[in-house]
Design a protein around this nucleic acid. Structure first.
Length: 335
DNA sequence: GCTGAGCGG
């Protein structure tokens, strides 16, 4: 009902924060799982819970900027990231160059994952500068991706390495992170051509990371891997792609890795039908992908970059530390 | 289960 001042990350009712995620709240017979699917909003106490319905695109600030000095009057016993008056900027690695790429792209976001959620996810690093979820200008709905800017490229890389492939809090899907490429900083992580293969017959538990490592141990030029997942459920569709920087390794992998086991199943490898950069024809980062109507951007009422002042310590999640396995049902629960 | 999608201000 009442929502906190929009000038900051709206902290939920603090007296309820202690619950964190448990599996038996309000639950009944142990089958419900720990999280409420958004549609059956049962007033979940935490901040990362879905629907607050109170969100109104109209009243979102252009840019939620929180100067570090603006300390809040919050008791110290509140363990959720409250920037109190700590200014630990001195301890943070300063960006070496302004043009340094230090923003990560994050995808596969559920619609209820707002800036608050993402902020909490990475708060412990104490190195997040801004967090932003991209929303549809008309509907205000999340476009399922966002950006996380860090204080340095090194910090971003650290998160990229440690979080990618780990489970997102309150979900059963994994983080999908990558370097931001199209936005501010030209393109990066693209040293030229990449050679992709198709990998089918993947076991359901194979993640981007798993797939990548499976190949990388044999082929050092592996640049990345992606398991195609269902947008709604976040589950694997059973196939994916692996990118190589070296064409010879790609060719070798096609035969050498075919039939090899990844997790519990033998992979089936084939060439990826990728019209871009199969060998040549790579001149421009990305041509205009849109050709339809040109709905000019307005003032971007949905621009909701959240600038994190200086995150102290907070109770958030470390990758791999799955204190509680949230066996939740898929959001759509259509299977 | 079998050729993705995912780049703003």
């Amino acid at each position: 009902m009442m929502q906190p001042a929009p000038t900051n990350i709206p902290p939920p009712t603090m007296e309820q924060q202690h619950h964190h995620y448990q599996q038996q709240q309000g639950g009944g017979g142990g089958g419900g799982g720990g999280i409420m699917p958004p549609q059956q909003q049962q007033q979940q106490p935490w901040m990362m819970m879905p629907p607050q319905q109170q969100w109104n695109p109209q009243q979102v600030q252009q840019q939620v900027s929180i100067p570090p000095l603006q300390q809040q009057q919050l008791p110290p016993h509140q363990m959720i990231q409250q920037p109190q008056q700590v200014q630990q900027y001195s301890a943070l690695p300063q960006p070496t160059s302004s043009d340094e790429i230090r923003t990560l792209w994050i995808g596969d976001l559920q619609y209820w994952m707002e800036e608050t959620y993402l902020t909490s996810c990475f708060a412990h690093t104490n190195e997040v500068l801004t967090v932003k979820v991209i929303r549809n200008k008309q509907t205000g709905q999340s476009e399922s991706y966002g950006f996380i800017e860090f204080v340095s490229r090194a910090a971003a890389e650290r998160v990229l390495q440690s979080f990618n492939g780990t489970v997102m809090p309150n979900t059963e899907q994994n983080f999908r992170l990558n370097w931001a490429t199209l936005g501010s900083g030209e393109k990066r992580a693209d040293d030229g051509t990449d050679y992709t293969i198709f990998v089918g017959d993947l076991a359901s538990d194979v993640s981007d990371y798993t797939l990548q490592e499976t190949f990388k141990t044999h082929y050092p030029s592996v640049k990345g891997a992606k398991v195609v997942t269902d947008r709604i459920t976040g589950r694997s569709k059973g196939y994916g792609f692996v990118k190589f920087a070296d064409e010879s390794e790609q060719v070798r992998a096609m035969t050498e890795m075919n039939g090899m086991f990844c997790s519990t199943r033998a992979m089936r490898i084939g060439p990826a039908t990728n019209k871009k950069t199969v060998g040549t024809q790579q001149q421009y980062p990305k041509a205009s992908f849109q050709s339809s109507d040109a709905t000019q951007s307005e003032n971007d009422p949905n621009n909701t970059t959240v600038v994190i002042p200086s995150l102290k310590h907070s109770s958030c999640w470390w990758p791999g530390v799955e204190g509680t396995e949230q066996e939740l049902a898929p959001q759509g629960s259509l299977l």
